[in-house]
């Protein structure tokens, strides 16, 4: 095989299709969104082409600043918890027998196939006073009477982490499966307890994978808009919920677009960070 830069249309063909898809499904919609975000809202109507920044001005208020920082904080917490739980889980998973691994992965994929609505309903039932888990605690004598645990911040967090968990495991899986299993054993022969070996060797050795996965889960959680409605109280509604409100219920496309552009820019900045981390890993 001679490696050289492709010449002519025919040799470029293999990348034309993905490039086209990227343009059609990302560049064009995103450009349209940016365009709409500076359009002028016609109250009682829809919107008209224009170049105004009122939508961005409206966004830059303490209220939306508060919602934005809550959304970012929530997404960060979800990412930290999901990775914090999924990492040790996956570390154990890759050491199971092949059959057991396949069963777990099928189970995780089946969670992935659940819609956000179903997850939201399942958790609100699980955390309800009338049919929820506290009834079990009461039966076991751990609680005096059943309590309602949803909607609440804890319920929202649980739902989001549950939803993000399978993604997190599937993203971590290849890196952990490739990790030399003897690293941990080496650390043990050098005087580290298994737990200490995990934290001083396994975790630092996969630092960049962990960072990249955390950012992915963060972006994923940032886009969640159904679970905050189903499991959270209004103060737990994320920016995505408000974008949905504006786009669907208020028909205020310019404002929804302005908020969405802002959210996409934050997401892109974080993906950029992930790529940067990946590059450092390569040079390391």
């Amino acid at each position: 095989m001679i490696r050289r830069a492709p010449r002519g249309l025919a040799e470029h063909a293999p990348i034309l299709f993905p490039a086209l898809m990227l343009v059609v499904f990302f560049v064009i919609p995103f450009s349209l969104m940016i365009a709409v975000s500076v359009f002028r809202r016609v109250p009682g109507g829809f919107y008209e082409p224009d170049l105004v920044f009122a939508n961005y001005e409206r966004f830059l208020t303490a209220f939306f600043g508060g919602v934005m920082s809550f959304s970012l904080g929530l997404a960060a917490l979800v990412a930290a918890l999901a990775v914090g739980i999924a990492f040790p889980f996956t570390y154990r998973l890759v050491r199971l027998s092949r059959g057991a691994q396949i069963r777990w992965l099928v189970f995780l994929l089946s969670i992935l196939s659940l819609s956000e609505v179903i997850i939201g309903f399942a958790w609100s039932t699980l955390l309800s006073r009338t049919a929820g888990i506290t009834n079990l605690f009461v039966a076991l004598g751990l609680m005096a009477e059943p309590q309602s645990l949803s909607p609440s911040f804890g319920a929202l967090l649980a739902g989001l982490v549950y939803q993000a968990f399978p993604y997190t495991v599937l993203v971590l899986y290849p890196a952990l499966a490739r990790l030399d299993p003897y690293l941990e054993e080496a650390a043990r022969t050098l005087g580290s307890s298994p737990l200490r070996a995990f934290f001083t060797v396994v975790v630092p050795a996969l630092r960049n994978t962990i960072v990249a996965t955390t950012i992915m889960v963060f972006v994923f959680a940032l886009g969640s808009y159904l679970l905050p409605q189903l499991l959270g109280r209004p103060q737990h509604w994320t920016l995505s919920v408000l974008i949905t409100d504006q786009a669907i219920y208020q028909s205020n496309m310019p404002f929804a677009a302005a908020m969405a552009v802002f959210l996409v820019l934050v997401s892109l900045a974080l993906v950029g960070l992930a790529l940067l981390a990946g590059r450092r890993e390569e040079t390391a």
């Binding site: 609505v117 939201g120 309903f121 609100s124 039932t125 309800s128 006073r129 009338t130 049919a131 309602s148 909607p151 409605q229 189903l230 109280r233 209004p234």
Partner: peptide
């Protein structure tokens, strides 16, 4: 207010159960 709902089915289920 425990729930500000957009999804009617969620409220209806909670109303029936007494939640």
């Amino acid at each position: 207010v425990k729930l500000w709902y957009r999804d009617e089915a969620q409220f209806e289920a909670s109303l029936k159960s007494g939640e």
